[in-house]
Simulated scan of single mutants.
Amino acid sequence: MKSEESGEDTDSVMVARAMMACVAAVGEYCHEYMFKQPSRHGEDKRAKFINSIIKASDRDCVTQLRMNRATFFDLCTQLHEKAVLRDTRRVSHEEHSIMFLRTLGHSVRNRVIGHRFIRSGETVSRHFHSVLDAIVSLYPIFIKQAGPATPSEIQTNTNWAAYFQEGSASDARVLHNALSRSDDPLLVPYRKYYIVDAGYAHSPGFMAPYQGVRYHLQEYRTGRAPANMKELFNYRYAQLLNAIERCFGVMKGRFPILKTAMQYEFHTQIQIVIACCRMLDKMSSDPSTPTHSPA
């Protein structure tokens, strides 16, 4: 009987010790990761770096964030007021935006941003996605599908007005998805056209160049003028396509992340492209924004 009681006491002691060890481990985790006080040295270093970007000069701000200070603060205001991007207990919405813009504008990984801002990789990732979601949520407000009116850049240009109306497309699968998706499908305005390259068939709403006729712009730079109506059409087509491709070149220059194989899920990659389009539109009025990749 005493042996059984002794065994039960031993079991009780072991359970109690295990419970105490668990409580101690949870307490240590909470102290280390949930309730820890940030390092004052780290806070000062982070604040100094942030101020060197957004409070020193437009030149520094453009170098780091690809936009000047006025454009940056206007973007922060819009995200804060219209997209409900809020400060957290330790990270302001301005810092959220700076980490996000440096990621896109310099194509750096989370661990690089985390080291520079003295933040964990989880914190950087969480705030990157919070800013990304906020910018994408503004997409319907600032980016509209083409309407029935012909853009003045085309309507007033005698080289293009007689032939073309709108935009471009680049890949058959992307085009099919854009036309067939149930959520906000691509709409082609009546009697308007998107130009498409020679890999596409000429079809209603999508205008391709004539086949078997000089097509690339460099083919017309040898000094020989278009010899007939089809060559003239293809020449005007190539000029317009070149202008469109330069627009994509500008966006890739400002956001080098678009040039790399992004280490994000496919849905996030789509959001990043939308966000870059939104910010490129935002920065179009900023003459100090460079069109090349940062050094």
Rank of each mutant, 00 (worst) to 15 (best):
R86D: 07
I53L: 14
V108I: 11
H127G: 03
E94Q: 10
E122W: 00
N110D: 09
H129G: 06
E81L: 13
H127Y: 10
K82Q: 15
A83E: 09
C76A: 15
C61V: 11
H93C: 15
H106G: 01
D58L: 08
T71I: 13
I118R: 04
L79S: 05
R119G: 04
R126M: 04
V84H: 11
I98F: 08
D74H: 15
C76K: 14
V84W: 10
H96W: 02
K55L: 13
A56F: 12
F72I: 06
D60H: 12
F128D: 01
A56C: 13
T123N: 07
F100S: 01
G114A: 06
N110T: 06
G121N: 13
R116Q: 12
T123L: 04
T77Y: 13
I53S: 07
H106S: 02
S57K: 13
T88R: 07
F100W: 08
L85V: 05
T71A: 15
K82G: 08
L65A: 08
C61K: 10
D74C: 15
A56L: 14
H80A: 12
C76T: 12
R89V: 01
A83G: 06
R116L: 12
V124R: 04
I118N: 02
I118E: 05
T77L: 14
Q64G: 00
D60L: 12
S120P: 05
R86H: 06
D60V: 12
S125F: 00
H93I: 05
S92P: 03
V112Q: 05
D58G: 07
D74Q: 15
I53Y: 05
S97A: 15
H96V: 04
D74E: 14
S107D: 14
D60F: 07
V108A: 00
T103Y: 00
L101W: 01
H93N: 12
F128P: 00
G121W: 00
L101R: 06
F73H: 12
R102P: 01
T123P: 10
I98Y: 01
L101G: 02
I98S: 05
Q64N: 11
H106M: 04
R59L: 10
E95K: 09
L75C: 11
R90P: 00
I113Q: 04
T63R: 13
R66K: 10
I118M: 09
E122V: 09
A56K: 14
I53P: 06
R90H: 09
R111G: 02
D60M: 11
L75D: 05
G121E: 11
K55R: 15
S125A: 14
I118D: 03
G121T: 10
I53E: 07
S125K: 05
H129V: 04
E94R: 07
S97T: 15
M99P: 02
C76S: 13
I113E: 04
E122I: 09
R66A: 04
V91Q: 00
Q64R: 10
